[in-house]
């Protein structure tokens, strides 16, 4: 019984995530190409891809690796780029109730932007622990596989795909498609607009800190909009 609920969750999670996962393909390929153009060997590039498994952190630290920057600066940069995951981790943590600690570490390692956005709502609502685990792991492991395979394609294709095709634009499209259903609620729309605007205004901040400030500002604006909305509707 528990095995079948794991499978049912995995199937639903995978099918819902499949169309959105195409956005990972250009990101992975672009990251693979960037690692090679930084001067890594194919083995080093794929080693980084497996160990780090994070497009933003990989692309963000490559320029530092290229110039031989100190290790602490690379770590600090990666932490700044990954700060959003602390927020995501806290928001989705309740969805792992009933799951053991080793599995939680594995799930944490696999947590990505796309899977978080796709899985969070049902992870919090559904009671069945096995179903939730399947629902999270299927799209996560699929993302991992796509990330490794297409980074490898990028590693070997480096230099032969014309840059002006701008395949990485598909990643932006995928992220925005994830945003559309959320933005149908007014406070969510406010959160998105403030987050986006702040991130654009603060784009010059070092270490991409503008992204983090944008997220915090967006959360605050969404929360404020929710309060204002509730007070307006109360008699």
């Amino acid at each position: 019984m528990s095995v079948s609920s794991f499978r049912a969750g995995a199937r639903e999670g995978f099918i819902g995530f499949l169309p959105l996962s195409v956005g990972l393909i250009p990101w992975a390929m672009v990251t693979g190409m960037a690692m090679i153009s930084t001067g890594l060997t194919p083995l080093q590039a794929m080693g980084m891809n497996v160990i780090v498994f994070a497009g933003t952190a990989q692309l963000g630290t490559l320029p530092l690796i290229a110039v031989g920057a100190p290790l602490w600066l690379m770590v600090l940069t990666a932490l700044a780029l990954n700060l959003r995951f602390v927020i995501f981790s806290a928001a989705i943590a309740e969805g792992f109730r009933g799951v053991g600690t080793p599995t939680r570490w594995a799930c944490g390692h696999l947590l990505t932007d796309g899977v978080f956005a796709h899985c969070m709502e049902k992870m919090l609502k559904v009671e069945d622990t096995r179903w939730r685990l399947g629902y999270f792991l299927a799209p996560s492991l699929w993302s991992w596989l796509l990330w490794q395979v297409f980074a490898l394609v990028g590693v070997f294709a480096a230099g032969s795909i014309p840059k002006h095709w701008s395949l990485e634009f598909m990643a932006s499209i995928a992220l925005l498609v994830l945003l559309i259903p959320m933005a149908k609620q007014r406070p969510m729309l406010v959160a998105a607009m403030v987050g986006g605007a702040t991130s654009v205004i603060l784009r010059g901040m070092p270490l991409r800190l503008g992204l983090i400030v944008g997220i915090v500002a967006g959360i605050g604006a969404g929360f404020a909009a929710e309060h204002w909305h509730a007070r307006k509707e109360a008699p």
Binding site: M182, A191, A192, S199
Partner: peptide, 13 residues
């Protein structure tokens, strides 16, 4: 509100 804010903050620039 984190996902909506983050997705927009990543895409907008």
């Amino acid at each position: 509100y984190a996902p909506a804010a983050a997705l927009a903050a990543i895409v907008a620039p």
